[in-house]
Design a protein around this nucleic acid. Structure first.
Lengths: 344, 344
DNA sequence: GTCGCCTGTGGAAGCGCTTCCGGAACCCGG
DNA sequence: CCGGGTTCCGGAAGCGCTTCCACAGGCGAC
């Protein structure tokens, strides 16, 4: 029964150890009903033969795979990569494998949901910052596995996320505290993703201004597709408005980067002439000296992974959602409002 | 034999279609020896029952899993994320699943190589920009599967990569052509990865300078751990040297970003006072107006994936390595050498 | 009108594991 | 010294598929 010099099977182990297949299996799995002596004997053979159980056979016999699917858009961006890294670390430590599905553009998406390639392959799925519409949700249900959302709230599944509203408030309130009243906002959306119900980072801006009795100037709000280039364009427009804003609140570091580039080109000094604050606190913010609201990305991943592990060990139970705190990290890009320069 | 209202099995399909299990299997797999009529009948039932074959059972019976392992460090960085995205796209289109292993710090690494979690689970592995030492190579051999390297050359496995030397030359030659002779270099290494035999991006610098009869000033060369912050520090030192360099060649966009930030803080104008060129041409370069050598990351992923698919379809064959061309993208961060400003 | 032969099909043996079930050996108290 | 309960262990039946092999017809060729 031994396969041609390939990997040894449990049957090989059993034979060498002089026990039955059943006993070998129990010994390997630390199951009850094996004497300590026998167990040691078997484990020694396992060691000697360098035996590794075939996960496929295990899954087939046992009915669960210890595998989870990760569906994620935009892997090239820091946020998503970090999130995946956090999840991977936790899951692999628990011996759970990760099947990766990168669903980027709408076509990928259609493909994914129509073919549902994860089907029958995993015990759970984690969707990263990935709003699903009703129809897609129904397809997912077809997989018949636990679903968890990470990096974004979900009404349908347990999730782990930061409080985007609070984060936005931390950013805008910081600006307000520094005396800024004319604040531009750089918001972004995903062309390829269905828009979420409401952008909480935007609402934070409106609320904060309202609470301070500041009227919103619509010309100071720019909503664009994600990307530094678009942010630069919007910033150029912001600079043309009169009076010019003294601060910019960007929904993400990448947006802020584009903005800062545009500011540099225009000869606008940061923070002397204009303050910039963002959300994320990616490495970008650090090397840019950007004041940003830190969100614990890796940790979100870790927690999402734990939620899934819990769900796997206690089938049927529904994990409670988690919302992680954020924290303002002040760097050199923000300062007290100065004398607003006159527009030439 | 039907499981409790769960997913239908091939046996269910066979019964409903009124054929044997063997025939159903052949029909589903488009194998020879099934009449067209029978095949259609079976496929109709498949459709109706929404049957999906259990990959575990397939693998067990067939001996191959249509699964490949992806081992990657630093998922949070653009390069790695994009690479993974490219690979995923190609592989998933071919119906091959991806098992993701994120191996970041040395401990992860030890873990990975000692436990070899991918063992017995995949048909091939792709290592992304991931030098393996001799001992690790031997461990990998244990898996007994085809190994491919992406985003870096390998002497042991077929690889797909850019020509780092040529890329470096494109960057430095560009500077040279603009009249720069005093050029600083920002090189980086990975603390967590074994150093590659030789840094070709560095050698390009030395060779180019030599060919132009320019002596290398060691004080203009900074080798640091990867990261914008370190690049900023190095740049500050560069600015202190006398005479000050008129240009900086950074090994990657992120390094250039850190450099540009330091330059801005020091009031050094780019490109009037100092030119900056880098390698990668990530989105960062675009929103920064950074002149950079473009490397086709996504494409490297695509090709690596194809190589693996080929290897899977023709076991035993060794794919030929591929080296992709790069291209200089000139933006606003480089210009002709001006009158070098006197050091105050 | 036979004898191959080719095309379709079904039976059945695995693939490598888990787990139910029954039995053997051993312990205890009575 | 014996009955009943543990404790360990082996046999064997799957898990859901693939595939080898045998076999039944249908065909053309002789």
């Amino acid at each position: 029964m031994r396969n041609e010099a390939g990997t040894p099977s449990l049957a090989d182990v059993a034979r060498v150890a002089g026990v039955s297949l059943a006993t070998a299996s129990r010994a390997v799995n630390n199951a009850y009903g094996v004497s300590e002596a026998t167990r040691q004997k078997v484990l020694a053979v396992v060691e000697k033969l360098d035996f590794v159980a075939s996960p496929d056979a295990e899954r087939l016999a046992r009915g669960s795979s210890r595998r989870v699917a990760l569906v994620v858009p935009h892997l090239g961006r820091w946020f998503f990569g970090e999130m995946v890294a956090g999840i991977e670390r936790e899951l692999s430590a628990a011996g759970v494998d990760i099947l990766l599905y990168h669903v980027d553009d709408p076509e990928d998406r259609r493909e994914f949901f129509s073919r549902l390639p994860a089907r029958r392959k995993v015990d759970a799925v984690i969707a990263i910052a990935f709003p699903v519409d009703e129809e897609e949700r129904q397809r997912l249900e077809l997989m018949g596995v636990a679903i968890t959302a990470a990096g974004g709230r979900s009404t349908d599944y347990p999730y782990v996320s930061i409080d985007d509203y609070a984060a936005g408030r931390q950013a805008v309130d910081h600006l307000l505290a520094l005396g800024h009243t004319r604040i531009g906002m750089l918001a972004s959306f995903e062309r390829t993703l269905p828009a979420p119900r409401e952008n909480l980072r935007s609402r934070a801006y409106y609320d904060a201004l309202a609470e301070h009795g500041i009227a919103v100037d619509p010309s100071l709000v720019h909503d664009m597709e994600w990307g530094g280039h678009n942010a630069a364009l919007a910033t150029a427009q912001l600079l043309a408005s009169d009076p010019r804003p003294t601060a910019i609140y960007a929904h993400s570091d990448e947006l802020a980067l584009g903005a800062m580039h545009a500011l540099a080109l225009a000869g606008v000094r940061v923070p002397e002439d204009l303050s910039v604050v963002a959300i994320d606190d990616s490495p970008l913010a650090d090397s840019l000296g950007l004041t940003s609201v830190r969100q614990p990305v890796r940790e979100q991943g870790t927690i999402a992974a734990r939620m899934v592990l819990d769900a796997l060990s206690q089938p049927g139970s529904t994990a409670a959602s988690v919302m992680l705190p954020t924290q303002l990290v002040v760097r050199e890009s923000t300062g007290p409002v100065g004398t607003p320069p006159a527009v030439p």
